[in-house]
Design a protein around this nucleic acid. Structure first.
Lengths: 97, 97
DNA sequence: AATATTTGGTTTATAAAATAAACTAGTTTA
DNA sequence: TAAACTAGTTTATTTTATAAACCAAATATT
């Protein structure tokens, strides 16, 4: 009756990251940190988990002399996100038969 | 930008319990256990947390000789649930400005 | 009538997650 | 050249979720 919620997405910060990435081509570490208000450490850990799951791609580059970490959502990530949204919606409606 | 998700409701089992209770007058332990497929131990713990937060009322009675635990959602619980739903929806739409 | 099993739970222990704090390596500014 | 800042990572701590073990009473079995 209550389908399992993808544990990788059922996390406030990881969901916020995916929410941001689904709307844009790419986003870097600093952007994600500002938008989510996460600490750098927490963000670093959660990005790594999304990457391991292949929900996002992570590219480490340099902008001038400073490091820059760019994230992009993958097709697999889009699917997982859409599925999570659909699944949790079933927890919302009152008529659970 | 991303408002905090009530940690008490951002839990698969507690959300399922609330989802069930919001649709009915009352529900007992056995009913909730069957519908959620939770183990009795997990259900017991999560019911206790929802009760502590005053999101639900818990009444311990007897049906004949057997114990029966009845749960009901409170007005506070309804508000919290509705607010959780509204908040997490903001994580879903692509246009996060 | 004793014993085994089931019911309706609670308590305790363990595993997994989230988060914060501390650290690194390099850069810019005073 | 020392202090402060940037862009992170790693490690440690706290919090959660979950499972396993337990309990008391009721019912079923031999």
């Amino acid at each position: 009756m209550f389908e399992e919620l993808d544990p990788l997405l059922h996390s406030q910060l990881r969901l916020a990251i995916m929410s941001l990435l689904i709307g844009v081509e790419e986003a870097d570490f600093v952007f994600l940190k500002e938008k989510t208000n996460a600490t750098a450490g927490n963000l670093s850990v959660q990005i790594e988990k999304l990457k391991e799951a292949e929900y996002i791609d992570v590219e480490k580059t340099f902008q001038g002399k400073m490091p820059r970490t760019i994230c992009r959502i993958t097709p697999k990530g889009i699917l997982a996100f859409e599925n999570y949204v659909k699944t949790i919606q079933t927890y919302f409606n009152t008529n659970n038969k």
